[in-house]
Computed example of a mutant assay.
Amino acid sequence: MKRQKRDRLERARTRGYQAGVSGRSREHCPHSDIDAKGYWLGGWRDAMEDKGSGLFIR
Rank of each mutant, 00 (worst) to 15 (best):
E27Y: 00
F56Y: 15
A47N: 06
G43N: 08
D33K: 10
R58Y: 12
H28Q: 12
K2S: 15
E49T: 13
G16Y: 03
A47W: 03
M48T: 08
K51Y: 06
D33V: 09
Y39F: 15
Y17F: 13
E49C: 07
G43R: 11
L9M: 04
G43P: 13
R6Q: 12
T14L: 08
R6L: 13
L41T: 02
Q4L: 13
T14A: 09
S32P: 01
T14D: 05
M1T: 06
E10W: 09
L55A: 04
A47L: 03
R26V: 11
Y39M: 14
G20V: 02
R45T: 12
R13S: 13
R11P: 03
R8E: 14
K51Q: 12
H31G: 08
C29L: 04
Y39I: 07
Y17N: 07
R15T: 03
D46Y: 11
M48S: 10
S25C: 05
Q18Y: 02
R58S: 09
R13L: 13
S22R: 12
K51F: 07
Y17G: 05
Y17K: 11
Y17D: 07
D46R: 14
S53A: 04
D33F: 05
G16P: 09
W40P: 10
A19Q: 02
T14V: 06
A36S: 15
D46E: 15
V21P: 04
I34K: 05
E49K: 12
G42E: 13
S22E: 10
S25I: 00
D33L: 07
D35T: 01
R24W: 05
E49V: 10
H28E: 14
D46S: 15
R6C: 03
D33H: 11
M1W: 05
E10L: 12
S53N: 03
G16L: 08
Q18R: 11
S25F: 03
H31N: 13
D35N: 04
L9T: 01
S53D: 05
A12G: 14
P30Q: 11
D50F: 01
R3V: 14
M48G: 02
P30W: 10
F56E: 06
S22D: 10
D7L: 09
D33G: 09
I34Y: 01
G43Y: 09
K5D: 11
R15S: 06
G52N: 14
G42Q: 15
R24D: 05
A36D: 13
D35A: 06
I34M: 06
S22I: 00
R15K: 08
L55Y: 04
S22G: 01
C29Q: 03
S25T: 07
G52L: 14
S22F: 01
S22W: 01
L55E: 10
R6G: 00
G16W: 02
K5T: 10
F56Q: 03
D50I: 03
F56A: 00
G23Y: 00
C29F: 01
A47G: 06
R24E: 10
